[in-house]
Design a protein around this nucleic acid. Sequence first.
DNA 1: AGTTAGCACTCAGGCGATGTGAGTGCTAAT
DNA 2: ATTAGCACTCACATCGCCTGAGTGCTAACT
Lengths: 352, 352
Amino acid sequence: MDLTERKLKILQAIIGDFITTAEPVGSRTLSKKYDLGISPATIRNEMSDLEEMGLLTHPHTSAGRVPSEKAYRLYVDEIMKKQELSKSQKEVISKELYSNITELDRTIEHAAKILSHITNLTSFAITPRADEDLLKAINLLPIDEETVILMIVAESGKVSNMALKPRCQFTDEMLRILSKSMTYNYKGKTINQALKSDIVQHFESDVEAMSGLARNIMPNFVKTLEQMLNVNLYMDGLTNIFSLPEYNDISKARTFMEVMNKREDLAKKISCRDDGVMITIGTENEDDQLNDCSLITATYHIDGRLVGKLGVIGPTRMRYGEITSVIEYLTDNITNTFKIMGGKDDESENGK
Amino acid sequence: MDLTERKLKILQAIIGDFITTAEPVGSRTLSKKYDLGISPATIRNEMSDLEEMGLLTHPHTSAGRVPSEKAYRLYVDEIMKKQELSKSQKEVISKELYSNITELDRTIEHAAKILSHITNLTSFAITPRADEDLLKAINLLPIDEETVILMIVAESGKVSNMALKPRCQFTDEMLRILSKSMTYNYKGKTINQALKSDIVQHFESDVEAMSGLARNIMPNFVKTLEQMLNVNLYMDGLTNIFSLPEYNDISKARTFMEVMNKREDLAKKISCRDDGVMITIGTENEDDQLNDCSLITATYHIDGRLVGKLGVIGPTRMRYGEITSVIEYLTDNITNTFKIMGGKDDESENGK
DNA sequence: AGTTAGCACTCAGGCGATGTGAGTGCTAAT
DNA sequence: ATTAGCACTCACATCGCCTGAGTGCTAACT
């Protein structure tokens, strides 16, 4: 069967209506509300065709039609026009975002907040994984007779440290030499590269004592590097879903909360998503628990090198067009901000 | 009216029954289930008295009785025997707790997890506020021509740092001197004391350049110290409440989630609580949204100096006795662990 | 041939009547 | 002082009924 112009128009109307009302939409309502220039009966015939094509479903005989996942997919891929945000909308978003730029993490957290407020859905954002961040300096600082602090600084300004108690004697001199040597070895490399090189094996010094210290410290160097790869996941608007009719069912709400509480899983899932804007609808999500949700995510970039993600989750019935525009606008803003800002004063990144 | 032995027994039975079933308990059920040696009619008379005394309420005429807040208060204060945990229970808890001791934060997070699993309620834990932690070392490290890292180390092993870009020229030598001077000034003082002393004013050097650098750095020193006071709040078992009949009502569940999502408020609220085990029941919580919840919290100590909190939140109908014992056992264990551990190898505390 | 009016049919959801059972409170007998 | 007995209450479940929004089909219209 052919998807005529008219069928498309009807489908679009149905999707639009269902997205706002969450009620199955019938032929009469449709012909009244939208000026399609055809009678309910004709609409019914067309609807019947659309159903045959798998684009509409029927909760029960005497109910109106509901768009299928396939319909949403079609809508997202073909029909949905990329709607520019209005100037005032843009202004509000920018203003909100820029009102609170201190540190990357705070900015990302804030972006998630803005997003959930605008969309009335649950939003999430993950900070960039530092894989490609360049190492800048490595320091070993004596604190007392038995304690040393290992500190790693990356190009982006990220700092990670660990307090160590080496099991062997050490002098300030030894620490200085080892710091220098490590910095010399790893400066300019990405964290990934550093981790791939066989760090623990690497340091075999001629000087007996030195080699002992190095052996003691290297495993912790690896640990600290790995720590730098940790990402933070921020969420906001978790309770927004309680306003949605699809979550009136307590068990649905529960499932949703359970998914959102498995933060590590969620972070991993989101990290894996493609670059750019990505939309998954219902069963397109591999996770069974998300089978009646849709996700929209987009990527932002820090210094053109580090990549983070931002997005929303909600029922399959969502304003794909609008939301996509908002997310894109937000990520673009973040990317731009952290391109220009590069050397902003007062930038910080550190222990909670 | 007098609270006779028998009345107390009946009250206890009602509380016990209601806590497990969540259903109003009637006289017949009571006389059948519990061997009180008196007939339902007598129980009814006693119940009527208890109601007059404000210890029981009546959802409606033809329903059984429900314990009032006052009854729970009485129960908690007077009736509830401090029930020792069984040996096997203790073992399970200890084993679980010790299975995962790496770093203070992880341990506390894990303790919250254990607590929610055992109680089937929502648990929370906050890491100690570092007010009384002693400063140990302050370092300023040159990273590149314009970047300096300020690092503060405390006695407990906690490290906090910030990347700065001073607006003035500096040399390695200057940084070293300033570090030494700051360490000399603040070492051994608590963070609180340090913050109270007028840090910004303090550094007035004779050397012009030095004084400029100091003026540049001191505000950030304050910021970093303040950052060290931040506590982390961990929660677990948020979705447990969905299994409780009192949260079948979606709006109740929503309110609960909203409260738990205001993390800063929650952390503040919990931090303020008294030392030791503290139980607040229903309207004893100032927060309106918690008026049908009870909270049990207890404190743990790190090095006898730092104080953190651990607790659960649930409906007023909860197993106060059991839960209190579990929480106490957990906090005691944590306190002991971090007394002995003091100088454990591999201890760490750092950026994310 | 496509469109539309008309009509019979379907079915979820709301509403009222009814019945049931767990509970109470009171009174009189033990 | 305790208990048996009894009338009374009331939430809750169940049933049948009605309503209204919706469909699908057919026959008439353009």
